[in-house]
Amino acid sequence: MSGELGSSDGALLSARNVTKRFAGRVACRDVSFDLWPGEVLGIVGESGSGKTTLLNCLAGRITPDAGSVAYATASTGTVDVHRLSEARRRLLARTEWGFVNQDAREGLRMGVSAGANIGERLMAVGARHYGDIRGTAADWLARVEIDGDRLDDRPATFSGGMRQRLQIARNLVSGPRLVFMDEPTGGLDVSVQARILDLLRGLVERLHLSAVLVTHDLGVARLLTHRLMVMQGGAVVEEGLTDQVLDDPQHAYTQMLVASILPV
């Protein structure tokens, strides 16, 4: 089955010639790559370079105009993300995948408690024991370094960094294999960022997660990713090992990006 979808054997996610236009303007063009199990792929570039559009195409949130995205499911073989029924795609999205939004308010239910936020995925797949759900939620709250006595508090009362950590817990509770992250530390204070980066780094490693991370911050990319794709004007202009792309950039645009980092 994987052959007819044009994916590479063993790859978790395979994008082929993914192209998306908005009102005639190209948002991303001809993007192809394979993501391997345990790999964290960073997509970097300036705003407007098409990173987020690409991420949304990969995660099945928007349909590309051309190209395909193949995903190797845990049990039912490789599927074409954009040819799946909406039911299957949404099921994948809440079981095998996670999606961490830049704005935690978009990824959380602000009106219900932290515990309910974390427990939702469990309940969505049939968990019906309140005590167990609550226990799991408390465990995850601790894993993202939020005090246990905040379990029944609503995220509206949380700081930005706590909300982001709660969003991470809400996504990881179902044991996803692949997590999409859109600027997960964007808009946060530097000290708060550091804590989240550290947390993500540890979780990705311990849980052997695969991830696609969109960021404009090359420091974040260096810390969290194994591989980088550099996008400019909707196209991938360079890709490779993260440290190689950052230390020995080949393309003019990448060299400009790397040279633009302010030294500390």
């Binding site: 490779g240 090992l241 440290d243 190689q244 230390d247 020995d248 080949q250």
Partner: peptide, 9 residues
């Protein structure tokens, strides 16, 4: 040395 490590292409 860095080329050997794959750090430089």
């Amino acid at each position: 040395l860095r080329a050997l490590y794959g750090n430089y292409r």
